[in-house]
Design a protein around this nucleic acid. Structure first.
Lengths: 214, 214
DNA sequence: ACGTGCATGTTACTTGCGGTAACCGCAGTC
DNA sequence: GACTGCGGTTACCGCAAGTAACATGCACGT
């Protein structure tokens, strides 16, 4: 009785929460990050305090919102990363999956990469680390795990894998961000260029003038 | 007369501007980004409207502030990049210079990486590209230029160099950000790991289990 | 049947920010 | 001595985050 009651209410609350999140999604995707709580509440057909009851503060709402998209993106990345294929193919597939995602829905991308939005309240003490978007951190950690369990890197492999995980993710992110803004080439070309970089072409390339002494 | 007067006033204005910038610097380094204009004005011993007269709006002030630090960092990076040494040494020196800088003054780093702060006004139309911090873009472009004029990359070298420039900068940034937050290893180890990544160790590493078929 | 919780929703407020308008006082000039 | 330009101020506007206090409806115990 008591339990069924509780679950019933919980269910209703969860449904409501999901509805609110979808409304928030629509607004954020339309108005960009920095959409006001009032606007979101209006889109959901209610008023501000309800949002605050459900999500605590704006950060909470945004975190919940980001989690949905982040989880979805990470799922597709995992699929590409785990495909039964050679290493180079898997790397290219993963890069392409990420780039296709940010290309298809740039507003979502922009929202996810935003560190903390306004952040004027509660930002005290400015945690100097962890300034990056949570998405980047999570992608880095997941990639690190895959690298470490798939590759034989000798001693210190765990630390190396983590450095590489975050490094590669950062490379992908920065290149993707730049590419999305300037569109200097096709997605396939970008994927190929990045894979080439990871495959050591930087070290293998010849000097343009004189010997390596200069 | 008129000109000397003008220059006199200009000089005074420039000196004032520099003083204001230094005060702003102190506040931002103390309170983190999101420091209020009121606080900055108070630190400078004046009031808000003067700041607005000098810098237009908060974005202007922050841009001026960021430019100083960005220029300084880019100068030292250029020095490391242009040192008379082998390619690997130059890469390691550059990585180390960047990491040393963010390690020495993490607050400056955090400030510089902040895309647009509040950005609630004038952020309309959300430019989907160019979301990155200007510092990252500038570093990427500079590195691209160095790569392109130093390395022989065959056809399409310019585009390849730009992709690599932004990609490498992103790698450095993300790894540095993560490292700064968790401090999982020494700076030298991090530099070495990243250089190894760029030198193709990812491609060269052996599989951990079974053949490449799985 | 009837009050009692309790979740849901509202209006109306406070605080603090970015940004601006309008006013002050003091140099120098004619 | 009135006039103008410049550094400076107070006092305000608009707006967004967040909160307090009040209303409403629906299931329950007795």
């Amino acid at each position: 009785m008591d339990t069924t009651q509780r679950t019933e209410q919980q269910r209703s609350a969860d449904r409501r929460r999901r509805e609110l999140l979808e409304a928030a999604d629509r607004v954020v995707l339309r108005d960009g990050p920095g959409a006001s709580m009032n606007a979101i509440a209006a889109e959901a057909g209610i008023t501000k305090p309800i949002l605050y009851r459900h999500f605590g503060d704006k950060g909470g709402l945004y975190a919940a919102l980001a989690k949905r998209h982040t989880d979805a993106l990470l799922d597709s990345l995992r699929a590409a990363l785990d495909a039964p294929a050679g290493r180079r193919e898997r790397v290219e597939a993963t890069l392409d999956t990420y780039l296709a995602a940010i290309e298809a829905r740039p507003q979502v991308y922009r929202f996810l990469m935003h560190p903390a939005e306004g952040g004027q309240s509660g930002d005290q003490g400015f945690d100097v680390g962890k300034h990056s978007a949570p998405l980047l951190r999570r992608m880095g950690e997941e990639l690190a795990q895959v690298i470490e369990e798939r590759l034989d890197l000798g001693p210190g492999s765990q630390q190396l894998a983590r450095v590489w995980g975050h490094g590669i993710v950062g490379m992908m992110h920065a290149a993707g961000d730049w590419w999305l803004g300037e569109r200097p080439c096709s997605r396939a070309e970008l994927v190929r260029s990045l894979a080439d970089l990871l495959w050591g072409r930087l070290a293998a390339a010849g000097d343009r003038m004189g010997g390596p002494g200069f």
